[in-house]
Design a protein around this nucleic acid. Structure first.
Lengths: 121, 121
DNA sequence: CGTATACTGAACCTGATGGTTCAGTATAGA
DNA sequence: TCTATACTGAACCATCAGGTTCAGTATACG
């Protein structure tokens, strides 16, 4: 049903589900950085960092460009637009769900009143 | 620095990084459901679904209650507030980053002009 | 040229994930 | 009481994730 391009959200939420990668995004927010700078900053090997950057790149959150020996990483143009949209949609869904519960709660309250119950709040 | 409760975001973004689990959230948005109902809906074993629900519960997105034989799952009270906040923060970071790059801004402007688009900025 | 730097890729390791089956336990209902 | 339902837990399996090491390749620079 809503299965068509879920893979994309899989990739992006998956990419965000790692604190090192969120840290890298934060770092890149402060300025572009090379793989080795990021590796040093997060205390891991170049190879390890390169994998993380690869994941972020795959998800569309960063882009990289190699000039000479150095591969520079920067925030991608895509940003977090779709993820924000997804989350917002679900926040509304949540709200709607609990609005419904509020109605139920109100009904219960009415019943309580009808039954003469003065339950304190 | 912002390392203290990152584990929490790891769990929640991790939980969202699976289309079955996002599907379960959507389903629960339409109404509470038992484990077996969800298992059937997503065509997997009870045990498999129970694990997914466990992950969502761990992340705070759903709560469950067992009455008699049936464990009923519903959306948790926590919602996606913190995740939305995180994403929003980074969207601003993104925006700030690209505001700083007037080169890009100029390029976009040029394109707009080239395409005769009068989009206001 | 020679050497240090910056990355790349393959191979490997360990633990987590997403699933299954199978053998229970507990409860609902005839 | 008997049986079907609904879940639970342990065990297993294949694959992926996050990391490493090691052996390259390409480039900067004295």
């Amino acid at each position: 049903m809503v299965q068509y391009r879920q893979t994309h959200l899989d990739a992006s939420f998956g990419a965000l589900g790692d604190s090192t990668r969120r840290g890298v995004l934060e770092q890149l927010g402060r300025g572009d950085a090379s793989i080795s700078a990021l590796a040093e900053r997060f205390q891991m090997t170049l190879t390890g960092m390169k994998k993380h950057v690869g994941v972020l790149e795959q998800a569309g959150f960063v882009t990289t460009e190699k000039v000479g020996r150095v591969r520079t990483c920067k925030l991608g143009l895509r940003g977090l637009k779709e993820e924000a949209a997804w989350i917002e949609r679900y926040r509304q869904l949540w709200a709607a769900r609990f609005d419904a519960l509020d109605v139920v709660a109100q009904e219960l309250k009415q019943k309580e009143i009808a039954h003469g119950r003065k339950k304190r709040k």
